[in-house]
């Protein structure tokens, strides 16, 4: 796990800030780039960015980070499972697929990541892959026309790869 304690830990964030010209209008892009490295937005990073950019405060950055669904304040799993629950997927049975995943991967209440940090599960509103409904995306790869059985086979395969 990457840590943000000593000044040198913040070098990567400094690079991003420089690339984005320390502009407050680039805040969302900055947060996206930080999340791409850490797989979530560590509180230390949010505070650091808020203090480094003119016209921003940690509170404002926090406000932006909590507004958008893409940003996560807790670490995401190695495999990010996104179950599409757009209209087309919903009508064609995305919820049974989600239930099957949740039964397979028990998580603490209120958490979206398994305790071993391997999987995180969330629903997304629409991936625009409606003709493949119901669709599931794992780390950017789209799995079309999912069924509860099919998705369990995929998860089993991923688990075996990590044994």
């Amino acid at each position: 796990m990457l840590e943000l304690k000593t000044p040198s830990d913040f070098e990567k964030i400094d690079e991003i800030l420089k690339e984005c010209e320390y502009k407050k209008t680039n805040l969302i892009t900055i947060l996206q780039k930080v999340q791409a490295i850490y797989r979530y937005l560590p509180q230390e990073a949010i505070e650091y960015i808020g203090n480094k950019i003119d016209g921003l405060s940690p509170a404002t950055v926090w406000g932006v980070a909590t507004f958008y669904a893409q940003f996560s304040l807790e670490p995401k799993g190695k495999y990010e499972i996104k179950v599409c629950d757009g209209t087309a997927c919903h009508v064609r049975g995305s919820m049974p697929v989600l239930e099957a995943i949740k039964n397979k991967l028990p998580m603490e209440k209120g958490k979206m990541t398994t305790s071993d940090g391997l999987f995180s599960v969330e629903t997304v509103s629409c991936l625009g892959a409606c003709s493949l409904a119901p669709a599931v995306v794992i780390n950017g790869k789209v799995y079309p026309k999912m069924t509860p059985d099919a998705v369990l086979i995929i998860i089993d395969t991923l688990m075996k790869e990590n044994e």
């Binding site: 892009t29 958008y68 893409q70």
Partner: peptide, 21 residues
Amino acid sequence: REGAGAFVCGESSALIASIEG
């Protein structure tokens, strides 16, 4: 500009707020 997952940003004035960071 990449959105960050907020449906309301399809609304013109919200979209502008989002581009402004």
